[in-house]
Write a protein that binds this DNA or RNA. Sequence first.
DNA 1: TCTGCATGAAAAA
DNA 2: TTTTCCTGCAGAG
Length: 267
Amino acid sequence: MPEGHTLHRLARRQQKCFGGREVRVSSPQGRFAAGATVVDGMEFHRAEAWGKHLIQRYRDGARQQIVHVHLGLYGGFTELPVPMGEPIGQVRMRIVGDEVGMDLRGPTACELYTPAELDDLVARLGPDPLRRGADPERAWQAIHRSARPIGALLMDQKVIAGVGNVYRAEVLFRARLDPLRAGRGVGRAAFDELWTDLVTLMRIGVRRRRIHVVRVEDDYGPGSYAPDRPRTYVYRRTGEPCRICGTPIAMAEMAGRNLYWCPNCQR
DNA sequence: TCTGCATGAAAAA
DNA sequence: TTTTCCTGCAGAG
């Protein structure tokens, strides 16, 4: 679930449900009890995403508080109508608004942040394709002088924020780039195409709530992205035929994660 | 019912 | 590079 598009979607949803309103915040499981106590009863000012990080801002008059959430591999928010009923399982944070509430389970991080900590976070993240004003030049600078493979660079949040294992594999396939190619071997034109495609694909991800990168014409004739069609070219398709050339999709580990690619299309 | 794996990343080694 | 965090689900049996 959680690559950058999930977090941006979530930020929007929380903004809509809670933005500008007073909320009750608790930690039924207890591991965020101290933080929950601090923001409980404050106004949920706004929510925003930076890559895969969710930032919530609360305020109460002049008093302001920041909460930082990172979902990790399997964290997630569940939305429920109010009254929400007893928490089920390990609920790290519960936010209750006027009509709906959300339960957070399994996050890697859920903690109060100081403004300085937020500054540090933002400073160590690369440009986020989903944020307005993101500067791809910073990513190009990191990539074009690096000896690391482009497949590893794309997973590095310091290079580009918000890209995860699915977008990495799919965007490289669409660019017909060999994941093993060194960053410094990626030309300016190829990089520009990569960045532009990420912006396009991740926006589709936010809108459709899922990663969908397969063009209909690649399977079923002309058209755009269609809801019930295959959504990926290579991700988790080991051994299955490439949708373009029929070559079996390959898998190997890179940057600690399974990487999928077509050895024929991607050179 | 049980097992292993997963769209992540910090910390340890 | 490996371990750890610790949820949900698909596939096996």
